[in-house]
Simulated assay, not measured.
Amino acid sequence: MSRSVSPGSAAARWLEPLSLLAAAGIGIGSIFPVAKLAGLAGLPPLAFAGGIALVAALVLRLAGRLSGGGGTPVPPKVAWTYAAVAGPLTFAPFGLVAIAVPHVGAGVQALLQSLVPAITVAMAMAIGYERPGRRRAAGLALGFVGAVLIVASRFSGFDAPPAVWMAVSLAVPVILAAGNVFRSLRWPAGAGVLEMATPTLLAAAVLLLAGEGLLELTGLSLATGAFDPVVAAGLVLGQGILTGGGYICFFRLQQVGGPIFLSQISYVNAAVGMGIAVLLLGEHLELGTLAGALVIVVSLFIVGKPAPR
């Protein structure tokens, strides 16, 4: 005889992923407006992103030591091979965020992250991780329309940025979506969350800081303001700690939710980043931008829950 599942137990199963989604979204979504503040403090964008990745990795390392790690030990070669790919796909795109924010705004940059779920689904369908269907194809097409509205509205004003900066902004959700799929497909069997998250963020930090070092050596620094070391250090340390906590939740969500559910974090990221940009940084979002965001959210409901794999 089959055993019925009570509504309470069903709600309990959803409580962890939803809580993780909210916590990770807040910890990571705050990067967008803080990146703008870092630019105003004269901190080069890749140094900002690399610095918070390094601090976040140290937070994860400390959490791992205090908790005992958990999971099956992974050979260092396997862990670092995984991290060498996962790092650039998971966190390095925030270096592009920091580069583009002074030109397109934190609010628009955050809103574009709402494309990540649709792109994740498209990639999962393309590689056979999920079965294609008309409903999902329609939802993906609608999400694309929303992105076009956001981009078009940003170029409609007198302060429209050069196209290259919008192209950089649009590259970020594509890379993050690829990271969602890669981590789910290549996560080492039995590996603990903190064990894999730490080298992933360290790999991203090395890439970003090395990129900044190369720019400085060639005299191509992307800093946009007068450097204030005290403010810059405070922003990196504070955001790094917040990001570390966010990624503890993020990688746990990867395990319990899978790539499609995980991709919904981009909606929380977008809401947090846009909210701070508008309420605290005084940014203004055009009506077309908000309309595009609404269209993308509607596309989420059309795409719906994960299809059969």
Rank of each mutant, 00 (worst) to 15 (best):
residue 112 L to D: 07
residue 158 F to G: 15
residue 223 A to N: 03
residue 203 A to T: 09
residue 225 G to M: 07
residue 235 L to Q: 02
residue 203 A to D: 14
residue 226 A to S: 14
residue 257 G to F: 09
residue 15 L to F: 04
residue 250 F to C: 05
residue 103 H to L: 01
residue 164 V to D: 08
residue 25 G to Q: 12
residue 164 V to K: 00
residue 184 S to N: 14
residue 14 W to H: 11
residue 135 R to N: 07
residue 176 L to K: 01
residue 309 R to W: 11
residue 104 V to A: 00
residue 5 V to E: 12
residue 266 S to E: 12
residue 215 L to T: 05
residue 253 L to G: 02
residue 60 L to I: 15
residue 129 Y to P: 09
residue 63 A to L: 15
residue 262 L to Y: 05
residue 230 V to P: 12
residue 283 E to A: 00
residue 271 A to P: 13
residue 220 L to G: 15
residue 21 L to C: 06
residue 245 G to P: 14
residue 272 V to K: 04
residue 179 G to H: 06
residue 42 G to L: 03
residue 153 S to F: 02
residue 219 G to A: 04
residue 221 S to D: 14
residue 32 F to D: 13
residue 230 V to N: 03
residue 230 V to F: 09
residue 94 F to D: 07
residue 218 T to Q: 14
residue 66 L to F: 05
residue 216 E to M: 15
residue 290 L to H: 01
residue 19 S to W: 08
residue 281 L to R: 01
residue 128 G to E: 10
residue 147 A to T: 09
residue 154 R to C: 00
residue 108 V to E: 08
residue 139 G to M: 08
residue 184 S to F: 14
residue 143 G to T: 05
residue 146 G to L: 05
residue 104 V to I: 13
residue 178 A to K: 10
residue 232 A to F: 03
residue 9 S to G: 09
residue 303 V to N: 06
residue 78 V to T: 15
residue 241 I to A: 07
residue 10 A to N: 10
residue 237 L to Y: 13
residue 296 I to E: 05
residue 282 G to M: 04
residue 226 A to E: 15
residue 84 A to T: 10
residue 218 T to M: 13
residue 46 L to Q: 07
residue 296 I to F: 00
residue 99 I to Y: 06
residue 145 V to G: 10
residue 68 G to Y: 02
residue 284 H to P: 11
residue 13 R to L: 12
residue 45 P to D: 04
residue 289 T to S: 06
residue 56 A to K: 04
residue 156 S to P: 11
residue 174 V to S: 04
residue 161 P to Q: 02
residue 182 F to S: 04
residue 114 S to K: 00
residue 302 I to Y: 04
residue 91 F to N: 08
residue 288 G to W: 04
residue 244 G to Y: 11
residue 93 P to F: 01
residue 283 E to Y: 03
residue 115 L to F: 06
residue 273 G to V: 10
residue 263 S to K: 02
residue 187 W to V: 01
residue 97 V to Q: 03
residue 307 A to E: 12
residue 278 V to Q: 03
residue 307 A to V: 11
residue 174 V to L: 12
residue 294 L to V: 13
residue 77 K to I: 13
residue 236 V to T: 07
residue 163 A to K: 01
residue 130 E to L: 11
residue 235 L to M: 03
residue 168 V to N: 04
residue 38 A to S: 04
residue 178 A to Q: 12
residue 287 L to H: 12
residue 75 P to R: 00
residue 94 F to C: 02
residue 187 W to L: 00
residue 176 L to D: 08
residue 174 V to P: 09
residue 202 L to C: 07
residue 14 W to Q: 13
residue 89 L to T: 06
residue 86 A to C: 07
residue 260 I to A: 07
residue 1 M to V: 12
residue 233 A to Y: 06
residue 153 S to E: 14
residue 111 L to R: 00
residue 183 R to T: 13
